[in-house]
Design a protein around this nucleic acid. Structure first.
Lengths: 157, 157
DNA sequence: AATAAAATCACCCGAAAGTATGAGGGCTAA
DNA sequence: TTAGCCCTCATACTTTCGGGTGATTTTATT
């Protein structure tokens, strides 16, 4: 409870403490003044210095920093692979299966049928069958057309 | 000449003048003190207030304005097709000619060599030569690889 | 004018891609 | 369970692609 209150009024307490110290200093200086009658100028100077510092400190603490808003135009180059969303409707309407899509993706990466077969652990003939079906379903003649169309339709990144 | 000097030391002169005024004030207050023997506290308080203000003023004037920079990122999503900029450096470093780039673009659109030849009014053999050179320069084996790499390098949209 | 680079075309050959057809096994929804 | 789709694989055939070589013409570039 008390610690909470302390934490909340931390700054206020700090200010209070500082004021106290200042008053004490003032008093002490006055005492000195009483002892050395003619050290008035020193006293005044001390007060001046101390309160100048106080003023500076106050200004530093109390002035709000000027907020300068800098608008930076950040060009976002959408990494086609990162925020790619598969157009499942198109996929369904074309009737392309999961496996066929896989083949299509590898095709678009520039792999040969042979390489795709190795990648998917199936024979070249299987990939040929898949690609034929893909071309048929997508109504294209060549793999390059399939790739172009697939990208356009959002089937591949 | 003199006006220039004035302009240059404007702030310095201002400070000097202010100091002068302060000294005068101090003197005047001292005079008052002499007149009213027991108004010491008033005197000290006045000094305190004045120098606090001076400190504040000094801090405001002398410290660089504290600028808190808030960076607001404005995200811009460029349409890849609309504001496509050809990566001419890459094009030059690969040594790909204008004609070859044309062929590459048509390739990426899914055209066969035959079709590209018809489109550009040259023979199939010419397109074959072009594509061979393209693959050689791009260090790829297949047209699909060339397309993929060309897109990646910003040679085609 | 000389040189270099680009563009054009041709021929051959092998590799890859694409077409057609058939067939077997697996999964699922009617 | 049966019809339908998917996945797999095979064979045979055609087309397209890609590599290699060589040659001519046009177009810069110096």
């Amino acid at each position: 409870m008390i610690s909470k209150l302390l934490a909340k009024n931390k700054t206020n307490l700090l200010y209070g403490a500082l004021l106290g110290i200042l008053l004490f200093l003032l008093n002490w200086l006055e005492l000195r003044f009483v002892i050395f009658e003619h050290s008035f100028e020193i006293y005044a100077g001390a007060i001046a210095i101390i309160f100048t510092c106080l003023g500076i400190w106050l200004a530093m603490k109390l002035t709000k920093p000027r907020v300068e808003t800098v608008i930076v135009e950040k060009h976002i180059y959408p990494d086609p692979a990162v925020d790619f969303v598969l157009n499942e409707k198109e996929l369904a309407s074309l009737g392309i299966s999961k496996r066929e899509l896989e083949v299509l993706q590898l095709m678009a990466q520039g792999l040969s049928n042979e390489e795709i077969g190795s990648r998917l652990f199936v024979s070249l003939n299987t990939i040929k069958t898949h690609s034929s079906k893909i071309f048929e379903k997508m109504d294209v003649q060549r793999r390059t057309q399939a790739i172009e169309k697939a990208k356009r339709l959002g089937l591949i990144p």
